[in-house]
């Protein structure tokens, strides 16, 4: 058994209608303490989780969308967004939050965490994981 496992958090649900996204994000944050090789995938309605401009004040619910911005600080630096899911929903990468991380191997240069990739490529990355968590 490898001491470090490849883990993917697969997010397929919209953020506010159900609690899966919020509680899924909590798993990702706690998981950072275990120093595994982690990435996140946003597929289907999951892409709505990182849409810009979420404001839950009038809905009277917790706005956890700013938490995604903190992921880079916790070394969660690979957020794969499925191109097909964006296109089907009439979205482009500009509709998503500009999530970034500082690359310690590149003089702490600020780099985008979000990578929009096509399904075929994402399925290959998924196949290369050791553990998959679905939220």
């Amino acid at each position: 058994m490898p001491t470090v496992k490849k883990m993917m958090y697969v997010n397929r649900r919209a953020p506010h209608g159900t609690g899966y996204a919020l509680e899924g994000l909590e798993v990702v944050l706690i998981g950072t303490a275990f120093e595994q090789e982690v990435c996140m995938a946003f597929i289907g309605d999951g892409v709505y989780q990182i849409m810009q401009g979420q404001d839950t004040r009038a809905a009277g619910m917790k706005n956890f969308s700013p938490t995604y911005k903190a992921l880079g600080d916790y070394d969660v630096t690979r957020l794969y967004v499925e191109q097909e899911s964006l296109s089907e929903r009439g979205l482009s990468v500009d509709d998503l939050m500009p999530l970034t991380y500082e690359d310690e191997d590149d003089d702490w240069a600020e780099k985008p965490s979000v990578q929009v990739i096509v399904r075929k490529e994402l399925s290959q990355i998924m196949a290369a994981q050791d553990v998959l968590f679905n939220f």
Binding site: V10, R12, M126, Q129, D130, V131, L132, N134
Partner: peptide, 8 residues
């Protein structure tokens, strides 16, 4: 199989 993916 090496892992299980649940499409919930």
């Amino acid at each position: 199989h090496s892992k299980v993916q649940s499409w919930l």
